[in-house]
Design a protein around this nucleic acid. Sequence first.
DNA 1: TCTGTTATTGGCAGCCTGCCAATAGTAGGG
DNA 2: CCCTACTATTGGCAGGCTGCCAATAACAGA
Lengths: 198, 198
Amino acid sequence: MTEAAVRRRLSPDQRREQILVAAERLFAERPYVDVSTTELAAAAGVARGLLNHYFGDKRALYLEVVRRAALLPALEDVPLPTGSLAERVDAAVHWFLGSITPERATYLTIGAAEGIGDDAEVRAILAGAHDLAAGRVLELVGGDPDDAAARACVRAFGELARGAIREWSRAGTLTREQAHLLLRESLLVIVQGVLPGL
Amino acid sequence: MTEAAVRRRLSPDQRREQILVAAERLFAERPYVDVSTTELAAAAGVARGLLNHYFGDKRALYLEVVRRAALLPALEDVPLPTGSLAERVDAAVHWFLGSITPERATYLTIGAAEGIGDDAEVRAILAGAHDLAAGRVLELVGGDPDDAAARACVRAFGELARGAIREWSRAGTLTREQAHLLLRESLLVIVQGVLPGL
DNA sequence: TCTGTTATTGGCAGCCTGCCAATAGTAGGG
DNA sequence: CCCTACTATTGGCAGGCTGCCAATAACAGA
Protein backbone atom coordinates (compact mmCIF):
# COMPACT_ATOMS: atom_id res chain seq x y z
CA MET A 1 0.00 0.00 0.00
CA THR A 2 1.55 3.26 -1.08
CA GLU A 3 0.22 5.16 1.86
CA ALA A 4 0.12 8.90 2.05
CA ALA A 5 3.40 9.37 3.80
CA VAL A 6 2.80 13.06 4.21
CA ARG A 7 2.57 13.99 7.83
CA ARG A 8 -0.72 15.71 8.47
CA ARG A 9 -1.53 17.61 11.60
CA LEU A 10 -5.04 17.07 12.92
CA SER A 11 -6.83 18.50 15.88
CA PRO A 12 -6.44 16.35 18.98
CA ASP A 13 -10.14 15.50 18.94
CA GLN A 14 -10.06 14.29 15.37
CA ARG A 15 -6.91 12.26 15.89
CA ARG A 16 -8.25 10.78 19.05
CA GLU A 17 -11.43 9.74 17.34
CA GLN A 18 -9.53 8.29 14.39
CA ILE A 19 -7.45 6.13 16.69
CA LEU A 20 -10.47 4.99 18.67
CA VAL A 21 -12.34 3.90 15.56
CA ALA A 22 -9.42 1.83 14.34
CA ALA A 23 -8.85 0.38 17.80
CA GLU A 24 -12.48 -0.56 18.22
CA ARG A 25 -12.38 -2.61 15.05
CA LEU A 26 -9.18 -4.45 15.93
CA PHE A 27 -10.04 -5.08 19.57
CA ALA A 28 -13.45 -6.39 18.57
CA GLU A 29 -12.19 -9.00 16.20
CA ARG A 30 -9.25 -10.32 18.16
CA PRO A 31 -8.33 -10.70 21.83
CA TYR A 32 -6.38 -7.96 23.56
CA VAL A 33 -2.99 -9.66 23.61
CA ASP A 34 -3.14 -10.51 19.93
CA VAL A 35 -3.42 -6.86 18.95
CA SER A 36 -0.06 -5.11 19.07
CA THR A 37 0.35 -1.40 19.48
CA THR A 38 2.30 -1.42 16.22
CA GLU A 39 -0.78 -2.84 14.53
CA LEU A 40 -3.08 -0.36 16.21
CA ALA A 41 -0.90 2.50 15.08
CA ALA A 42 -0.71 1.19 11.52
CA ALA A 43 -4.48 0.76 11.35
CA ALA A 44 -4.92 4.33 12.46
CA GLY A 45 -2.21 5.52 10.07
CA VAL A 46 -0.18 6.95 12.89
CA ALA A 47 3.13 6.49 14.66
CA ARG A 48 3.12 4.10 17.55
CA GLY A 49 4.20 6.70 20.05
CA LEU A 50 1.11 8.73 19.38
CA LEU A 51 -1.06 6.13 21.05
CA ASN A 52 0.82 6.69 24.28
CA HIS A 53 0.60 10.41 23.82
CA TYR A 54 -3.19 10.37 23.59
CA PHE A 55 -4.15 7.49 25.85
CA GLY A 56 -1.20 6.83 28.11
CA ASP A 57 -0.80 3.15 27.42
CA LYS A 58 -2.37 0.32 25.50
CA ARG A 59 -4.60 -0.70 28.35
CA ALA A 60 -6.08 2.79 28.75
CA LEU A 61 -6.90 2.85 25.05
CA TYR A 62 -8.56 -0.52 25.44
CA LEU A 63 -10.62 0.64 28.41
CA GLU A 64 -11.79 3.63 26.40
CA VAL A 65 -12.93 1.31 23.61
CA VAL A 66 -14.74 -0.93 26.07
CA ARG A 67 -16.41 2.07 27.64
CA ARG A 68 -17.76 3.30 24.33
CA ALA A 69 -18.95 -0.11 23.25
CA ALA A 70 -20.63 -0.91 26.55
CA LEU A 71 -22.54 2.33 26.68
CA LEU A 72 -24.01 2.01 23.19
CA PRO A 73 -27.56 0.90 24.00
CA ALA A 74 -27.74 2.81 27.24
CA LEU A 75 -27.06 6.12 25.60
CA GLU A 76 -29.97 6.42 23.23
CA ASP A 77 -33.09 7.65 24.91
CA VAL A 78 -36.52 6.31 24.31
CA PRO A 79 -39.87 7.89 25.12
CA LEU A 80 -41.65 6.37 28.08
CA PRO A 81 -44.43 4.21 26.72
CA THR A 82 -47.96 4.39 27.99
CA GLY A 83 -50.65 1.76 28.13
CA SER A 84 -51.02 -1.52 29.97
CA LEU A 85 -48.14 -3.25 31.71
CA ALA A 86 -47.99 -5.80 28.90
CA GLU A 87 -47.63 -3.02 26.38
CA ARG A 88 -44.91 -1.24 28.31
CA VAL A 89 -43.00 -4.49 28.72
CA ASP A 90 -43.32 -5.10 25.02
CA ALA A 91 -42.02 -1.63 24.30
CA ALA A 92 -39.03 -2.15 26.60
CA VAL A 93 -38.11 -5.41 24.89
CA HIS A 94 -38.56 -3.81 21.52
CA TRP A 95 -36.19 -1.03 22.50
CA PHE A 96 -33.52 -3.45 23.70
CA LEU A 97 -33.74 -5.65 20.63
CA GLY A 98 -33.81 -2.67 18.31
CA SER A 99 -30.80 -1.08 19.90
CA ILE A 100 -28.61 -3.85 18.49
CA THR A 101 -28.06 -3.05 14.85
CA PRO A 102 -25.42 -4.77 12.71
CA GLU A 103 -23.06 -1.81 12.90
CA ARG A 104 -23.31 -2.00 16.65
CA ALA A 105 -22.42 -5.66 16.65
CA THR A 106 -19.38 -4.94 18.75
CA TYR A 107 -21.69 -4.69 21.71
CA LEU A 108 -22.46 -8.36 21.42
CA THR A 109 -18.89 -9.44 21.82
CA ILE A 110 -18.72 -7.86 25.25
CA GLY A 111 -18.10 -10.46 27.87
CA ALA A 112 -19.19 -13.19 25.51
CA ALA A 113 -15.90 -14.71 24.55
CA GLU A 114 -13.37 -13.75 27.13
CA GLY A 115 -12.45 -16.25 29.74
CA ILE A 116 -11.90 -15.85 33.42
CA GLY A 117 -9.86 -13.09 34.98
CA ASP A 118 -11.18 -10.50 37.34
CA ASP A 119 -10.37 -7.12 35.92
CA ALA A 120 -11.67 -4.52 38.37
CA GLU A 121 -11.70 -1.61 35.94
CA VAL A 122 -13.40 -3.49 33.13
CA ARG A 123 -15.87 -4.89 35.61
CA ALA A 124 -16.70 -1.39 36.84
CA ILE A 125 -17.26 -0.15 33.30
CA LEU A 126 -19.53 -3.01 32.35
CA ALA A 127 -21.39 -2.89 35.64
CA GLY A 128 -22.05 0.80 35.18
CA ALA A 129 -23.31 0.40 31.64
CA HIS A 130 -25.49 -2.57 32.48
CA ASP A 131 -26.91 -0.86 35.51
CA LEU A 132 -27.76 2.15 33.40
CA ALA A 133 -29.62 -0.03 30.93
CA ALA A 134 -31.37 -1.83 33.78
CA GLY A 135 -32.55 1.45 35.25
CA ARG A 136 -33.87 2.42 31.85
CA VAL A 137 -35.83 -0.79 31.53
CA LEU A 138 -37.17 -0.44 35.04
CA GLU A 139 -38.44 3.02 34.20
CA LEU A 140 -40.01 1.82 30.99
CA VAL A 141 -42.03 -0.86 32.71
CA GLY A 142 -43.03 1.47 35.52
CA GLY A 143 -40.96 -0.01 38.32
CA ASP A 144 -39.08 1.79 41.06
CA PRO A 145 -35.51 2.53 39.90
CA ASP A 146 -34.44 3.11 43.49
CA ASP A 147 -35.39 -0.36 44.66
CA ALA A 148 -32.01 -2.06 44.90
CA ALA A 149 -33.33 -5.61 44.74
CA ALA A 150 -35.61 -4.83 41.82
CA ARG A 151 -32.72 -3.23 40.00
CA ALA A 152 -30.60 -6.31 40.63
CA CYS A 153 -33.31 -8.50 39.15
CA VAL A 154 -33.50 -6.35 36.04
CA ARG A 155 -29.73 -6.34 35.75
CA ALA A 156 -29.88 -10.13 35.75
CA PHE A 157 -32.61 -9.89 33.14
CA GLY A 158 -30.17 -7.86 31.09
CA GLU A 159 -27.93 -10.92 30.96
CA LEU A 160 -30.83 -12.94 29.63
CA ALA A 161 -31.52 -10.23 27.07
CA ARG A 162 -27.93 -10.10 25.82
CA GLY A 163 -27.85 -13.89 25.71
CA ALA A 164 -31.06 -14.03 23.69
CA ILE A 165 -29.83 -11.35 21.32
CA ARG A 166 -26.64 -13.28 20.74
CA GLU A 167 -28.63 -16.44 20.02
CA TRP A 168 -30.61 -14.49 17.49
CA SER A 169 -28.08 -12.14 15.99
CA ARG A 170 -24.90 -14.16 16.01
CA ALA A 171 -25.69 -17.84 16.39
CA GLY A 172 -28.91 -17.69 14.42
CA THR A 173 -30.46 -20.26 16.71
CA LEU A 174 -33.42 -18.05 17.45
CA THR A 175 -35.44 -15.82 15.16
CA ARG A 176 -36.00 -12.28 16.20
CA GLU A 177 -39.62 -13.11 16.96
CA GLN A 178 -38.60 -16.01 19.17
CA ALA A 179 -36.12 -13.85 21.03
CA HIS A 180 -38.77 -11.21 21.44
CA LEU A 181 -41.24 -13.74 22.80
CA LEU A 182 -38.68 -15.11 25.25
CA LEU A 183 -37.77 -11.69 26.58
CA ARG A 184 -41.32 -10.39 26.73
CA GLU A 185 -42.65 -13.31 28.73
CA SER A 186 -39.65 -13.36 31.02
CA LEU A 187 -39.70 -9.65 31.74
CA LEU A 188 -43.44 -9.75 32.30
CA VAL A 189 -43.25 -12.48 34.89
CA ILE A 190 -40.34 -10.73 36.57
CA VAL A 191 -42.25 -7.48 36.87
CA GLN A 192 -45.51 -8.91 38.07
CA GLY A 193 -44.47 -12.21 39.59
CA VAL A 194 -41.08 -11.61 41.12
CA LEU A 195 -40.60 -7.96 42.02
CA PRO A 196 -43.71 -7.75 44.23
CA GLY A 197 -42.50 -10.76 46.18
CA LEU A 198 -39.19 -9.25 47.20
CA MET B 1 10.83 -17.42 51.75
CA THR B 2 13.60 -20.00 52.04
CA GLU B 3 12.01 -22.30 49.56
CA ALA B 4 13.01 -25.87 49.16
CA ALA B 5 15.62 -25.36 46.51
CA VAL B 6 16.02 -29.08 46.02
CA ARG B 7 14.94 -30.13 42.62
CA ARG B 8 12.25 -32.75 42.94
CA ARG B 9 11.10 -34.94 40.14
CA LEU B 10 7.37 -35.55 40.00
CA SER B 11 5.25 -37.60 37.71
CA PRO B 12 4.00 -35.60 34.72
CA ASP B 13 0.42 -35.85 35.96
CA GLN B 14 1.25 -34.48 39.38
CA ARG B 15 3.35 -31.65 37.99
CA ARG B 16 0.71 -30.78 35.46
CA GLU B 17 -1.94 -30.63 38.14
CA GLN B 18 0.29 -28.54 40.40
CA ILE B 19 0.82 -25.99 37.65
CA LEU B 20 -2.86 -25.87 36.78
CA VAL B 21 -3.90 -25.21 40.37
CA ALA B 22 -1.48 -22.32 40.69
CA ALA B 23 -2.46 -20.94 37.29
CA GLU B 24 -6.14 -21.11 38.08
CA ARG B 25 -5.65 -18.96 41.13
CA LEU B 26 -3.57 -16.31 39.38
CA PHE B 27 -5.67 -16.16 36.23
CA ALA B 28 -8.82 -15.84 38.30
CA GLU B 29 -7.71 -12.84 40.28
CA ARG B 30 -6.04 -10.83 37.54
CA PRO B 31 -6.43 -10.38 33.78
CA TYR B 32 -4.42 -12.55 31.42
CA VAL B 33 -1.86 -9.94 30.38
CA ASP B 34 -1.07 -8.99 33.95
CA VAL B 35 0.01 -12.51 34.81
CA SER B 36 3.50 -13.23 33.56
CA THR B 37 4.83 -16.69 32.91
CA THR B 38 7.59 -15.92 35.38
CA GLU B 39 4.92 -15.36 37.99
CA LEU B 40 3.04 -18.48 37.04
CA ALA B 41 6.19 -20.53 37.30
CA ALA B 42 7.09 -19.03 40.67
CA ALA B 43 3.62 -19.71 42.03
CA ALA B 44 3.91 -23.31 40.96
CA GLY B 45 7.45 -23.54 42.33
CA VAL B 46 8.82 -24.46 38.97
CA ALA B 47 11.13 -23.16 36.27
CA ARG B 48 9.50 -21.03 33.60
CA GLY B 49 10.49 -23.33 30.80
CA LEU B 50 8.48 -26.14 32.32
CA LEU B 51 5.24 -24.37 31.52
CA ASN B 52 6.10 -24.52 27.84
CA HIS B 53 7.12 -28.13 28.17
CA TYR B 54 3.77 -29.15 29.60
CA PHE B 55 1.36 -26.80 27.89
CA GLY B 56 3.12 -25.43 24.83
CA ASP B 57 2.63 -21.77 25.53
CA LYS B 58 0.99 -19.41 27.97
CA ARG B 59 -2.21 -19.23 26.00
CA ALA B 60 -2.65 -23.01 25.93
CA LEU B 61 -2.24 -23.11 29.70
CA TYR B 62 -4.83 -20.38 30.00
CA LEU B 63 -7.28 -22.24 27.77
CA GLU B 64 -6.85 -25.33 29.91
CA VAL B 65 -7.69 -23.32 33.03
CA VAL B 66 -10.74 -21.81 31.35
CA ARG B 67 -11.88 -25.24 30.25
CA ARG B 68 -11.71 -26.63 33.75
CA ALA B 69 -13.44 -23.66 35.32
CA ALA B 70 -16.22 -23.53 32.76
CA LEU B 71 -17.08 -27.18 33.10
CA LEU B 72 -17.42 -27.12 36.86
CA PRO B 73 -21.21 -27.10 37.25
CA ALA B 74 -21.83 -29.11 34.12
CA LEU B 75 -19.79 -32.04 35.32
CA GLU B 76 -21.61 -33.03 38.45
CA ASP B 77 -24.60 -35.16 37.76
CA VAL B 78 -27.92 -34.83 39.44
CA PRO B 79 -30.78 -37.32 39.63
CA LEU B 80 -33.74 -36.53 37.44
CA PRO B 81 -36.44 -35.17 39.69
CA THR B 82 -39.97 -36.40 39.57
CA GLY B 83 -43.23 -34.65 40.37
CA SER B 84 -45.06 -31.73 38.89
CA LEU B 85 -43.50 -29.32 36.44
CA ALA B 86 -43.21 -26.72 39.18
CA GLU B 87 -41.32 -29.16 41.34
CA ARG B 88 -38.95 -30.17 38.59
CA VAL B 89 -38.27 -26.53 37.75
CA ASP B 90 -37.59 -25.86 41.38
CA ALA B 91 -35.18 -28.79 41.51
CA ALA B 92 -33.34 -27.55 38.43
CA VAL B 93 -32.91 -24.08 39.91
CA HIS B 94 -31.81 -25.60 43.17
CA TRP B 95 -29.16 -27.62 41.37
CA PHE B 96 -27.80 -24.61 39.54
CA LEU B 97 -27.69 -22.43 42.63
CA GLY B 98 -26.19 -25.19 44.70
CA SER B 99 -23.48 -25.93 42.19
CA ILE B 100 -21.86 -22.60 43.00
CA THR B 101 -20.00 -23.02 46.24
CA PRO B 102 -17.45 -20.53 47.53
CA GLU B 103 -14.52 -22.68 46.49
CA ARG B 104 -15.94 -22.77 43.02
CA ALA B 105 -16.18 -19.01 42.89
CA THR B 106 -13.85 -18.92 39.92
CA TYR B 107 -16.80 -19.97 37.83
CA LEU B 108 -18.45 -16.66 38.51
CA THR B 109 -15.67 -14.62 37.04
CA ILE B 110 -16.10 -16.29 33.68
CA GLY B 111 -17.04 -13.77 31.07
CA ALA B 112 -18.04 -11.32 33.75
CA ALA B 113 -15.20 -8.89 33.82
CA GLU B 114 -13.22 -9.11 30.64
CA GLY B 115 -14.07 -6.72 27.91
CA ILE B 116 -14.65 -7.12 24.23
CA GLY B 117 -12.55 -9.20 21.92
CA ASP B 118 -13.75 -12.13 19.93
CA ASP B 119 -11.64 -15.09 20.91
CA ALA B 120 -12.84 -18.06 18.88
CA GLU B 121 -11.29 -20.73 21.06
CA VAL B 122 -12.47 -19.29 24.35
CA ARG B 123 -15.89 -18.78 22.86
CA ALA B 124 -16.01 -22.41 21.77
CA ILE B 125 -15.05 -23.60 25.24
CA LEU B 126 -17.64 -21.47 26.99
CA ALA B 127 -20.32 -22.27 24.43
CA GLY B 128 -19.72 -25.97 24.90
CA ALA B 129 -19.88 -25.78 28.67
CA HIS B 130 -22.96 -23.59 28.70
CA ASP B 131 -24.70 -25.77 26.17
CA LEU B 132 -23.96 -28.79 28.31
CA ALA B 133 -25.52 -27.12 31.32
CA ALA B 134 -28.50 -26.02 29.23
CA GLY B 135 -29.09 -29.55 28.04
CA ARG B 136 -28.96 -30.72 31.64
CA VAL B 137 -31.56 -28.18 32.70
CA LEU B 138 -33.76 -29.06 29.75
CA GLU B 139 -33.66 -32.70 30.80
CA LEU B 140 -34.46 -31.85 34.40
CA VAL B 141 -37.58 -29.94 33.51
CA GLY B 142 -38.69 -32.57 31.02
CA GLY B 143 -38.10 -30.69 27.78
CA ASP B 144 -36.72 -31.99 24.51
CA PRO B 145 -32.92 -31.65 24.48
CA ASP B 146 -32.89 -32.06 20.71
CA ASP B 147 -35.10 -29.06 20.05
CA ALA B 148 -32.57 -26.48 18.88
CA ALA B 149 -34.73 -23.45 19.60
CA ALA B 150 -35.69 -24.72 23.04
CA ARG B 151 -32.04 -25.36 23.79
CA ALA B 152 -31.18 -21.83 22.69
CA CYS B 153 -33.80 -20.43 25.04
CA VAL B 154 -32.41 -22.40 27.94
CA ARG B 155 -28.89 -21.32 27.06
CA ALA B 156 -30.11 -17.74 27.28
CA PHE B 157 -31.72 -18.62 30.59
CA GLY B 158 -28.29 -19.79 31.69
CA GLU B 159 -27.09 -16.22 31.27
CA LEU B 160 -29.87 -15.03 33.53
CA ALA B 161 -28.95 -17.71 36.04
CA ARG B 162 -25.27 -16.76 36.11
CA GLY B 163 -26.25 -13.11 36.37
CA ALA B 164 -28.57 -13.77 39.28
CA ILE B 165 -25.96 -15.89 41.02
CA ARG B 166 -23.42 -13.10 40.68
CA GLU B 167 -25.92 -10.62 42.12
CA TRP B 168 -26.37 -12.93 45.05
CA SER B 169 -22.94 -14.41 45.60
CA ARG B 170 -20.65 -11.56 44.67
CA ALA B 171 -22.52 -8.28 44.71
CA GLY B 172 -24.80 -9.25 47.58
CA THR B 173 -27.64 -7.33 46.00
CA LEU B 174 -29.95 -10.31 46.13
CA THR B 175 -30.44 -12.90 48.81
CA ARG B 176 -30.27 -16.52 47.84
CA GLU B 177 -34.02 -16.78 48.27
CA GLN B 178 -34.59 -13.82 45.99
CA ALA B 179 -32.30 -15.27 43.35
CA HIS B 180 -34.10 -18.57 43.66
CA LEU B 181 -37.46 -16.91 43.24
CA LEU B 182 -36.29 -14.99 40.20
CA LEU B 183 -34.90 -18.06 38.50
CA ARG B 184 -37.79 -20.32 39.39
CA GLU B 185 -40.46 -18.00 38.04
CA SER B 186 -38.46 -17.20 34.93
CA LEU B 187 -37.67 -20.80 34.10
CA LEU B 188 -41.25 -21.79 34.72
CA VAL B 189 -42.66 -19.24 32.33
CA ILE B 190 -40.05 -20.18 29.76
CA VAL B 191 -40.94 -23.84 29.91
CA GLN B 192 -44.67 -23.46 29.85
CA GLY B 193 -45.15 -20.08 28.21
CA VAL B 194 -42.36 -19.75 25.69
CA LEU B 195 -41.16 -23.16 24.53
CA PRO B 196 -44.62 -24.34 23.38
CA GLY B 197 -44.97 -21.19 21.28
CA LEU B 198 -41.85 -21.76 19.20
C1' DT C 1 7.76 35.66 5.78
C1' DC C 2 8.83 34.41 10.18
C1' DT C 3 8.27 32.55 14.73
C1' DG C 4 6.18 30.10 18.58
C1' DT C 5 3.30 26.37 19.72
C1' DT C 6 2.46 21.65 19.85
C1' DA C 7 1.05 17.57 17.11
C1' DT C 8 3.87 13.91 15.60
C1' DT C 9 7.68 10.98 14.97
C1' DG C 10 11.65 7.59 15.62
C1' DG C 11 14.65 5.21 18.42
C1' DC C 12 16.30 3.46 23.07
C1' DA C 13 15.86 0.43 27.29
C1' DG C 14 13.46 -3.03 29.74
C1' DC C 15 10.39 -6.84 30.13
C1' DC C 16 8.13 -10.95 28.49
C1' DT C 17 7.72 -14.94 25.75
C1' DG C 18 9.07 -19.24 23.20
C1' DC C 19 12.77 -22.24 22.20
C1' DC C 20 16.54 -25.48 23.02
C1' DA C 21 20.62 -27.54 24.62
C1' DA C 22 22.49 -28.83 29.04
C1' DT C 23 21.68 -30.83 33.66
C1' DA C 24 20.36 -33.94 37.18
C1' DG C 25 16.70 -36.85 39.71
C1' DT C 26 15.14 -41.57 39.65
C1' DA C 27 13.89 -46.23 38.48
C1' DG C 28 15.48 -50.63 37.16
C1' DG C 29 19.09 -54.07 35.99
C1' DG C 30 23.40 -56.17 37.22
C1' DC D 1 24.88 -51.45 46.38
C1' DC D 2 26.36 -49.17 42.16
C1' DC D 3 25.62 -47.76 37.65
C1' DT D 4 23.33 -46.59 33.57
C1' DA D 5 19.58 -45.11 30.62
C1' DC D 6 15.64 -42.34 30.61
C1' DT D 7 13.43 -38.11 30.98
C1' DA D 8 11.78 -34.43 34.12
C1' DT D 9 13.67 -30.05 34.82
C1' DT D 10 16.47 -26.09 34.36
C1' DG D 11 18.88 -21.75 32.64
C1' DG D 12 20.07 -18.78 29.14
C1' DC D 13 19.54 -16.85 24.31
C1' DA D 14 16.98 -14.32 20.55
C1' DG D 15 13.04 -11.86 18.99
C1' DG D 16 9.13 -8.99 19.74
C1' DC D 17 6.37 -5.75 22.24
C1' DT D 18 5.67 -1.85 25.30
C1' DG D 19 6.48 2.72 27.53
C1' DC D 20 9.23 6.74 27.41
C1' DC D 21 11.44 10.89 25.68
C1' DA D 22 13.95 14.04 23.01
C1' DA D 23 13.94 15.65 18.26
C1' DT D 24 11.20 17.15 14.32
C1' DA D 25 7.96 19.55 11.53
C1' DA D 26 3.07 21.18 10.50
C1' DC D 27 0.18 25.02 11.24
C1' DA D 28 -1.68 29.47 13.13
C1' DG D 29 -0.97 34.09 14.09
C1' DA D 30 1.74 38.32 13.73
